[in-house]
Amino acid sequence: MADRTVSELVAAARGGELRATARLLTFVERGGDLAEQVAEATHDHVGNAHVVGLTGPPGSGKSTLTAAWAIRLAEEGRRPAVLAVDPSSPLTGGAILGDRVRMTAAAAAGVFIRSMATRGHAGGLALAVPGMVRVLDVAGFDPVIVETVGVGQVEVDVTAATDTAVVVVTPGMGDAVQANKAGLLEVADLFAVNKSDRPDAADVRRDLELMLDLSKLTGHGRPDAVVRPTIVSTVATTGRGVAELADAVDTHLEALRDAGLLEARREVRRRAEVRSHLEHLVLAASAAAVEAAFGAAASGAETADESPGATARRLAERLLTDPGS
């Protein structure tokens, strides 16, 4: 397998070979030349998969809900894939990716599940996730579900960069309020109130409705929303409400299509992705330029008499006019 080229792997992935898909995902996740090759080989045949983001606070039952939903989709003859993102340890770069614990039955039902760690740098996640989603799309998976822990801005951005964003909240512990604070309200196309068999589930629903009412007045909420977000009540552990969730997600896609907004969202996503790539390149180039100006090989003569701002402007000018330097 180590000998196969990227294009051979892409062909195999399109033919349904899971191992080839998995290896392509590894390439994209690692970044670098191979990731570029994968991007090159996959960018022109995309757009078949419905890309769904699913996020929520820790302990909201996201994984269980995702698993129940994906099993349902698999039983209907669809080919769902799940990309489960968990944070890396900021200290060691390592990570414990535990989503599969709750997804054993989904894996057994034929759902493709890939766990990924944020690997420290925010830019990396924003680069890797769209590339990995594209690989899954090319490999014929639909929908592609990106599951994140809704705690940081990056995770929220990743969720926002999908066709349909589902935010999971639970009764108790003020999750609905937390969801609002974390900016989740502003990206949600759909809310799942999980663990809705709990007595205080009605309160959460009411809080959400209230916030949605207010968002109309305050202008918060998703700017490109087609409809007011649906609220679905679920109990992931028993499967209650999972069919409604599946329907609501499908309905949202239809609504986007009917309103002509699907392509617009994907265009925004593409733009954001280009921007992430660009930022990544610029960051690398800036680091190299600073190193060249201050590092061991530099004389220091040029920078000695300048203010830091002036040095930066001079380096930027050189970078922008002569990126090869």
Partner: peptide, 20 residues
């Protein structure tokens, strides 16, 4: 330990089979 050693651990937990 492996996480703290910089590795990524995909944790499957209890009662797995060779197939899973």
């Amino acid at each position: 330990m492996l996480r703290d050693g910089g590795m990524e651990v995909v944790y499957l937990g209890l009662r797995q089979t060779t197939a899973s």
